[in-house]
């Protein structure tokens, strides 16, 4: 059998099999675009590990749903359990707070989610595989109903963010001035973090935890290297997110790589491609200024 890395597959094959690949490839693009957009707030508010923590909290929610059904006789949909725990996980981030407080909270939520899931998992051994399936969907194949749910939610959240972006930006980047100007800062925070929790948990469910984390951080980091304003950053991060999701799927097909890591690595490559020249140009300017000062 030839080494896959030595013999990349033709992309013609990909497009010939479009019927087969359409949903996972487009799901990557849609989730990438949505989380790319929201990622600008995630990165600038310094909560980049939020999506990782949210995934773990969702895991605990699903585990608790199974536990309730098995041992307490209470039927709770695993998705509802995940949604409730996800909502509770983002609640502490509504409002201000110092970087240290936010970082500590992220650590606590991640640990509570992961340790809690493992602990509850010992009481629901038979369902642990189901938890993995429900939580960490696979980016290789996406069920039609999951794809439909993803694009519908993405469209709704995208439109909401297009409409409310000035409010979200004011509440995120100039909180005190926004409060003095009478903006409903707390409500804006609640809506922003609720949309973020929904987008992260849905992407995690549909494509997996790694792509969800990658989409919510890397496109925004790349966009912020070159954007000159917040609207520019939002538009650019949306586009780069879509590129990361779709391009990552193409890469995974061509080089027989796992989808999630291929998407994450493409995101890292975009960050390097956009930050590299910017930093190099800055270095050259500094050198020139130093040279001019010494002559």
């Amino acid at each position: 059998m030839p080494d896959a890395l030595d013999a990349p597959l033709s992309l013609d094959l990909f497009f010939e099999g479009w019927e087969l690949f359409r949903e996972p490839a487009l799901a990557g693009a849609i989730a990438g675009a949505l989380l790319g957009l929201l990622g600008v707030y995630v990165v600038l508010r310094r909560v980049v590990f939020l999506s990782a923590a949210v995934s773990q909290a969702a895991g605990l929610g699903v585990a608790l749903s199974f536990y309730a059904a098995l041992h307490l006789g209470v039927a709770v949909s695993p998705l509802v359990g995940a949604a409730v725990l996800t909502g509770l996980a983002v609640l502490p981030f509504v409002g201000g707070g110092t970087d240290a407080r936010r970082e500590s909270l992220l650590g606590v939520i991640w640990l509570l989610g992961s340790a809690g899931t493992l602990a509850v998992g010992t009481r629901i051994v038979a369902e642990v595989t189901d938890i993995q399936d429900i939580l960490f969907g696979t980016a290789v194949a996406v069920a039609p109903e999951d794809f439909a749910r993803l694009w519908q939610v993405a469209l709704a959240l995208g439109l909401l963010h297009l409409w409310w972006w000035r409010g979200f930006a004011a509440a995120s980047f100039s909180r005190d001035a926004a409060r003095v100007q009478g903006l409903p800062v707390r409500l804006l925070d609640v809506v922003l973090f609720a949309t973020l929790a929904l987008a992260v948990s849905l992407t995690t469910r549909t494509l997996g935890a790694l792509p969800a984390f990658a989409f919510s951080v890397l496109p925004a980091v790349a966009a912020l290297a070159v954007a000159r304003s917040v609207p520019q950053a939002l538009v650019l991060a949306t586009g780069l997110g879509a590129l990361t999701g779709f391009g990552g799927y193409l890469l995974s097909f061509r080089y027989s790589l796992p989808v999630g890591p291929a998407q994450a690595l493409l995101g890292v490559a975009l960050v390097a491609a956009l930050h590299g020249p910017v930093r190099a140009a800055r270095g050259v300017r500094r050198l020139r200024a130093r040279f001019a000062a010494t002559t």
Binding site: W164, R166, G167, A170, P184
Partner: peptide, 8 residues
């Protein structure tokens, strides 16, 4: 410029 709910 924004005051109250004018961001809508």
């Amino acid at each position: 410029l924004d005051r109250g709910w004018s961001f809508l």
